[in-house]
Amino acid sequence: MGGPEMRAALVTQVRHDLDRCRTTLLTATAEPGKARDHVSICKAAHGIKGLAVTVGALALADLAREVEKACQTRDTAKIDKLLARLATETGETSTALAQLASAD
């Protein structure tokens, strides 16, 4: 798929998209006194899932799928349990991609 420049541009864009989804997750979670925005969380989790399967980050994809499903069923206990982990693992995957790209 394309040359090194194309790959680098693609990795940069994937990282940017993952970071955007992560910001959405954190924003939707961290506003005190406000009801949690399940729709935004669900969309962000769905976005992370699509990106994760594409780059082969299957554990992250599974986690995002669980969060998305929990949002759809309004399983708040499960969302509470998984949300922070999803945000952390999304950040870690983005960092790992940056390291892979710099080693390429």
Binding site: M1, G2, M6, A9, L10, Q13, V14, H16, D17, G47, G50, L51, T54
Partner: peptide, 15 residues
Amino acid sequence: DTPSLQMLYATVLRK
């Protein structure tokens, strides 16, 4: 709607 996936699919199609 995801820019990186759009970029990836468009690259494959153009190729």
